[in-house]
Simulated assay, not measured.
Amino acid sequence: MSNTDFQAAVKQEEAYLRQVHPTPEDIPGCMTLFDDFLLCNVLGAQVKSLYRFGRMSECKHKMEDFKFCMSLKSMHPEDKRDAWIRRRAEWWAHKRLAKSSENIWDVRKEPLQNWPPPSTSNDVDTVQRSGTIA
């Protein structure tokens, strides 16, 4: 990932987050972030992560979000919103540009040739006789 790609992704994410969170009241409070951290550690979330990814949930980033929020307490609400949006935009940009468990397939530019294979009269006869595809 190049720095240019990352900076472009951050700008896109910031623009989106500014629309989603137009006022300082729209960003999550510190207690909400602390609740998110606690919910990450409950048994159900851990089991779901173990099932989906084969490992326990890593909740450290949620605690870091809470600590970051606490460090902004003395700031003006608009400055606090800007700092929060910048941090979230960088997080989303990293997530967008990094590999993930969803990156297992290559996107095709064109459909496969000769797929599905054309059926033959032999296939139709087999289905009619047995009721199943051979």
Score class of each variant (00 low, 15 high):
Met1Phe: 10
Met1Leu: 12
Met1Asn: 08
Asn3Pro: 02
Thr4Leu: 13
Gln7Phe: 02
Ala8Leu: 09
Lys11Ala: 15
Lys11Thr: 11
Lys11Gly: 07
Gln12Val: 04
Glu13Asn: 15
Ala15Lys: 14
Tyr16His: 12
Tyr16Glu: 13
Leu17Pro: 02
Leu17Trp: 03
Arg18Lys: 15
Gln19Asn: 07
Gln19Cys: 01
Gln19Gly: 08
His21Trp: 15
Pro22Thr: 09
Glu25Tyr: 01
Glu25Asp: 13
Gly29Leu: 07
Phe34Lys: 06
Phe34Gln: 02
Phe37Pro: 00
Asn41Glu: 14
Ala45Thr: 14
Gln46Arg: 12
Val47Ile: 14
Ser49Gly: 06
Ser49Cys: 07
Leu50Ala: 08
Tyr51Ala: 13
Tyr51Gln: 13
Phe53Pro: 00
Gly54Phe: 02
Gly54Arg: 05
Gly54Thr: 03
Arg55Ser: 05
Met56Tyr: 05
Ser57Trp: 05
Met63Asn: 09
Asp65Ser: 03
Phe66His: 01
Phe68Glu: 05
Phe68Arg: 09
Cys69Trp: 03
Ser71Met: 06
Leu72Glu: 04
Ser74Thr: 07
Met75Ala: 08
Met75Tyr: 04
Glu78Val: 14
Asp79Glu: 15
Asp82Trp: 00
Asp82Val: 05
Asp82Glu: 11
Ala83Glu: 15
Trp84Ile: 10
Arg86Glu: 14
Ala93Gly: 01
His94Val: 06
Lys95Arg: 11
Lys95Thr: 11
Arg96Asp: 02
Arg96Leu: 01
Leu97Met: 05
Leu97Gly: 04
Leu97Ser: 05
Ala98Lys: 10
Ser100Gly: 10
Ser100Asn: 01
Asn103Thr: 05
Arg108Cys: 00
Lys109Thr: 09
Lys109Pro: 05
Pro111Tyr: 04
Leu112Gln: 08
Gln113Leu: 09
Gln113Trp: 04
Asn114Ile: 03
Asn114Cys: 08
Trp115Leu: 00
Pro118Val: 13
Asn122Ala: 15
Asn122Ile: 14
Val124Leu: 15
Thr126Gly: 14
Thr126Ile: 14
Val127Leu: 15
Val127Thr: 09
Val127Phe: 15
Gln128Trp: 12
Ser130Trp: 13
Gly131Asp: 13
Thr132Pro: 01
Ile133Asn: 08
Ile133Ser: 09
Ala134Thr: 12
